[in-house]
Simulated scan of single mutants.
Amino acid sequence: MRLLLVEDDNHVAAALSAMLSKHGFEVTHARSGEEALQALLPDSGAPFGVVLLDLGLPDQDGFEVCGKIRKRTATPVIMVTARADVRSRIHGLNLGADDYVVKPYDTMELLARIHAVSRRTAAHDPGHATEEGPDGSHPPLRLGPVTIELPTRQVSVNGMTVSLTRKEFDLLALLAQRPGVVFRREQIISEVWRTSWEGTGRTLEVHIASLRSKLRLPALIETVRGVGYRLVAPAD
């Protein structure tokens, strides 16, 4: 996978590029916002799978760069920055960032987040090969007794159809794309409700409770205290 690393510190970029290359990524290093935007032009070569974006750039703020990137392409953007305050995280997600990682970070966690956003993007791309069967159809997601039909937005448990609201389905489908992966609360809010975490936390909790009740599988969605939620695939 091609990866665009936007980082003005050459020492940090060199170490991170070496680690990413070791794990199979083809890394392009941009030292400024303008270099990053030029690298993302359609005629600049094969598309990037992920953009790692530092916020402290020499020519323009990383938030501004993220906004410009999102207007040009749907390429996943992970903000990698020392700005740890909640307002910055919310602002970044609202601008269209797919994830927000605070320095210093564990390199294996960063790798996991890169793979998570790239796979999630592929899963939401109707034309992606991993989502289509040999005949062009979209195979259902099967999680123990739960079956999720993405094209028709239908859910069944043990063969019995379960009626879900639009947001309940979107929430379940998001978690089901990556069973076992913890989705942060603000990440879920950003992707399902397309808004910020502030004032929406209670809404998320209500929808989680409703899903557990309707599916009659209370252990299906696990609460990871202080972080978010993950789907635990039950046995048949």
Rank of each mutant, 00 (worst) to 15 (best):
K22H: 13
V65P: 03
I188A: 02
T152H: 11
H11E: 12
D106P: 01
L217P: 04
L40P: 02
A233L: 01
G62T: 05
L231I: 08
G180T: 10
L211E: 09
L111H: 07
R142V: 15
T223M: 00
S32M: 03
M79L: 15
E205P: 00
L16V: 06
T121D: 07
L93D: 07
S88Q: 11
V77D: 02
A46R: 14
D99C: 08
K167S: 14
D59E: 14
F169Y: 15
E131M: 14
R89S: 10
R70A: 05
R153Y: 01
G144F: 06
P104W: 06
L41T: 12
K22V: 00
V101S: 07
E149Q: 14
R87N: 10
S21N: 14
W197H: 08
R225G: 00
V117K: 02
I188R: 03
A116Y: 02
G144L: 06
A112S: 15
A173I: 02
V181L: 13
R216C: 09
E186K: 03
F63G: 09
I189P: 02
L55C: 09
E149P: 00
F183D: 10
G201W: 06
G56T: 02
G180R: 10
G92C: 10
D54I: 04
D59N: 13
K167I: 13
R178T: 03
Q154A: 11
T107H: 09
L172W: 05
R142G: 00
V155D: 05
I148H: 06
L171Y: 08
I189S: 04
A46T: 12
L52Q: 06
L93M: 15
E26M: 10
G136M: 11
G136T: 12
D170N: 12
P76D: 12
K103P: 08
L20R: 06
P134N: 05
E198L: 14
L110H: 01
V6I: 13
S21F: 00
T195S: 14
D61R: 08
G24V: 08
H124K: 09
V50R: 04
L215D: 07
E132I: 13
L55Y: 05
L215K: 07
T73L: 11
A30G: 04
I114Q: 04
V12A: 14
L172M: 09
S44I: 04
L16K: 04
R31P: 00
G133M: 01
